[in-house]
Structures are given as structure tokens and as C-alpha cells.
Computed example of a mutant assay.
Amino acid sequence: MTATIIDGKAIAARMRDETRAEAQALTDAGWAPRLISISVGDVAAAELYVRNQQKSAEAAGVAFEARNYAETISLEQLQGVIAGLNADPRVNGIIIQRPLPAHIPVKALQKAVHPLKDVEGMHPSSIGNIVYNDLTLGPCTAVAAVEILKTLPLKMEGLDVCVIGHSEIVGKPIAFLMMGLGATVTVCHHMTRQVAVHSRAADAVFVAVGKPGLVNGAMLKPGAALIDIGINRVNDSEGRGKTVGDADFDSCAQVAGWITPVPGGVGPVTVAILMKNAVLATRMQLEHYRAAFAAAV
């Protein structure tokens, strides 16, 4: 068996077309969607992400501004910056680029972003809403992975799913999202004794650990869907750097029914979800301001 390679770029392009139409409608109404990206210190590690986000924003009709602050800025100063952006109706979404300096905890900044402008879906309230199957502004990578699975000819109700990795922003949200769709979910982590026992029983496997080659073909049920969310930099046999996922692609492709490549799988869809969230956040803010300042009748 040779797996069908899932084209994340094509899925992202379809989503981007829908987002662009909605962004234009908001612009015509006087609410042009606008994102602000915040990075701190040396931006080399985040530069590629920022560049890709800007390109996707432009393609989706969303204004994008990247702001970089000195590494010496304090947490309190950054929280003040975010408070100002929260209060500015011309700003509809705030992105916190990682990594951050050691003295600035990312969770503190995520909490500082107003939930209506949390386009990354990282605010505790956004994460918590998933428990109630409320996807108003969900965490982008988790939502992207599930959206990819939904494009496949698989019935979500009763689907046996294995999630390898239980991070707060990817693994756990995926588990709740899939349960909300009616799937039966097993979550594996670093204390799971026999991961392969669980993954071989699953109709769909999500892996998001950050360990290249963690999943191989022997760990999959024939015909299963494999959604690889990992992003790792490794060197090939000639010492050249390349990007790979958490799965051994060659062996998994011989067993799986569908598989996401890395790059070109979950990544493009994640950025498309970010833009979709930006437009949705703008719509929500428009409605919020209309309700708050509507003339009394």
C-alpha cells in the first residue's frame, strides 16, 4: 500500500479564498482586518514564520504589521504594549512570536491578549472553550490538524483516534476537538508504556512531539490516516539541513492510507487558520462595538 499524500497547500488555498471574500466584506463595511505581530530581541528564529504569516495575510486581504522590541524590554512594558493594542479598535488580532527571552514568560503575554483579539487561540479562555466544543477562536495548529482529517472520506463519529503528544496547545486540544466530533480518543505521552499498541489500533493518528522518526510504519494500522504535526531540523547523509516531521515518512507511507508531508502538510493550513481567525475576530469586534455603542431607541 502507498499512502495518498495530503496536499496541505491546496487545502490552505481553498480556505484562503473563503477568508479573502470575508475580509473584503468587512473592509467594505469599514472594518479592514489588521494583525499586529510582536517579537522580542533577535528575530532570526521567528523570521521565517513572520515572513510566511505576512505573505498569507496579504493573500487573504488582511493587513499585517510586524513589530520588534529590544531584548531588554520588561514583561510589564510588553504587557503595557498589549494593553494599548487591546484598546485600539484598528487592531483586530495580536500574534506573539516565539521564542521569547527567558525573562518574559509566553503564558503571561498570552493571558494579556484580549480574548476577542486572540487570533492564535492561546488565551486560557480560548483553550478552555474547547472543552465545551466552542471553537470561536481555537488554537491554530490543533484546529488545522483536525480540519485536514475532516477532508478525508472518514466518518468522524466513532472513529478510533490516537493522539501522540499531550501539549496544552496541540495534543490536548486535538483530543477534545475529536471527542467533540464523536471520535473515541486515546492520548499517548512520555509516560505511556506501549505507544505502538495504541497507535496500531487507531483509524487516525496525530503526532506532535518534536522527535523525528518517532512513528514508523510498524506502528500504524494499514490504511490509517497519519497527521504529522512535528517540525524538526535534521541533517541528511551529506550534512545538509532539512525539515522533517515526527514520523518516518517512507515507512509510514507504505502502510498508511493518507499521510501529511512535512513541510507542506499541517503548516500551510495552520497559517490559513490564523488568517481565518483574524477575520472572525474582526467580525466579532465589529458586532461587539455595534452592540456596545448602538443608539438607544
Rank of each mutant, 00 (worst) to 15 (best):
M122C: 05
R14E: 13
M156S: 01
G128Q: 10
Q53F: 08
Y49R: 04
D88E: 15
Q97I: 04
I104T: 00
Y132H: 14
P115N: 07
A59R: 02
A23Q: 01
G84W: 15
A60W: 03
Q77H: 14
S56I: 06
E18V: 12
A45W: 13
G128K: 11
E22D: 08
L135P: 08
R20F: 09
F64V: 10
A45C: 08
G80V: 10
V113R: 00
A108N: 03
E22N: 08
D134A: 07
R20Q: 09
E157V: 06
L137N: 02
G41W: 10
G128E: 11
I148G: 02
P99D: 04
H114Q: 12
T72E: 12
T27Y: 05
V50H: 08
K155I: 15
V81F: 11
H103C: 06
L100M: 00
V113N: 03
L135Q: 12
L135Y: 14
A59P: 00
P124V: 04
L116Q: 07
D17T: 14
V131E: 14
T151P: 11
E147C: 12
A70Q: 14
S125M: 12
T151L: 10
L26W: 03
A142D: 01
A108T: 05
K150Y: 14
H114D: 15
A59Y: 07
G84F: 13
M156V: 05
L109I: 04
Q97D: 06
N92I: 05
D88Y: 13
R16Y: 08
A87I: 08
R20G: 03
A63F: 13
W31Q: 10
M156W: 10
V106T: 04
A112H: 05
A63H: 15
D134C: 09
P153L: 04
V40Q: 00
A102D: 15
D42H: 03
V161Q: 02
G93W: 01
K111S: 15
G41H: 10
A60G: 03
T27F: 09
Y69Q: 06
G158A: 08
A63R: 11
Q54M: 15
G61M: 01
P33V: 06
N129M: 12
N133F: 13
L152A: 09
M122A: 07
G128M: 11
G93V: 00
G61N: 01
A83H: 14
E22C: 03
A102Y: 15
R90M: 14
E65W: 07
